[in-house]
């Protein structure tokens, strides 16, 4: 007989592998998020009436687009578990429930990274005034932290909303206000990177705020996620 619950990492990989396989078999989230992002850039071009953006305006356009695109993925994150019994499967298996949260957050992180691999170059071509090459290193760091925030909050909000009657309304209503601090820190970090006349490294304090945000929500999610699976 086991004296303690098994470690969460191994089942996390099993679950993550299944999520990636599902997305490969029936691609839904990633293509939708990519198309949504590019369409939004076009909308911003006409909405702002500008051919080129830079500085804090560029940071805002890029990050708000990624944020809204992420909402699409967050809405769908647990749909297969809810519709096809994945919740029960996880609860019946001798694994730690945290593995489900970790795998979903990782899947969302990977999806967002894939989306950004297309969306950020598209943004640079379509809208960005200054050259993106100087900003590349900084952007990778900032976007990794942003993806972490989106993945953690997204997986949590998605799990919170999935078994409610109006989950597609609940996700943006709860998710967007929760992500405001992350957006503040991310756009303040991005603005100097995309500034006209050369990128400069973002202030350390904003990167620290983003990292702190990731940490706080990581711990919060770890503490409360199990309660969302109980019945």
């Amino acid at each position: 007989m086991r004296s303690r619950e098994p470690r969460p990492m191994r089942p996390t990989w099993v679950l993550l592998r299944k999520d990636l396989l599902l997305e490969r078999r029936a691609p839904e989230s990633v293509p939708a998020m990519v198309l949504f992002s590019i369409t939004t850039f076009v909308l911003f071009h006409f909405g702002l009436g500008r051919d080129e953006v830079e500085g804090s305006l560029a940071a805002g356009v890029l990050l708000v687009t990624i944020l809204f695109a992420a909402i699409l993925g967050i809405n769908r994150l647990f749909v297969s578990e809810q519709a096809e019994g994945g919740f029960d499967a996880v609860l019946l298996a001798p694994i730690d429930r945290t593995a489900l949260f970790l795998s979903k957050a990782m899947a969302l992180f990977l999806f967002l990274t894939l989306v950004e691999l297309v969306a950020v170059p598209a943004f640079a071509i379509l809208l960005l005034g200054p050259s993106p090459w100087d900003a590349l290193g900084g952007l990778v760091v900032v976007l990794a932290l942003v993806n972490g925030a989106l993945a953690l909050v997204g997986a949590l909000v998605s799990a919170l909303a999935i078994r409610t009657r109006s989950r597609d309304l609940i996700v943006p209503m709860i998710g967007l206000p929760l992500l405001v601090p992350a957006l503040i820190a991310a756009s303040r970090s991005c603005a100097p990177l995309l500034a006209e006349g050369g990128a400069s490294w973002p202030a350390a304090k904003w990167l620290a705020v983003l990292a702190l945000y990731d940490l706080v929500f990581g711990l919060l999610a770890y503490a409360v996620f199990d309660f969302l699976l109980e019945d």
């Binding site: 919170l160 078994r163 709860i174 969302l228």
Partner: peptide, 30 residues
């Protein structure tokens, strides 16, 4: 949007815990 009262209580509590922790974090960032 949650009909079962048990689940409603649990989910609302999860929300309240997250949001309660969010309040100071948000204040700091703003």
């Amino acid at each position: 949007s949650i009909e079962d009262p048990e689940r409603q209580a649990r989910y609302a509590s999860v929300f309240a815990v997250i949001a309660g922790a969010f309040v100071p974090l948000n204040f700091m960032a703003v």
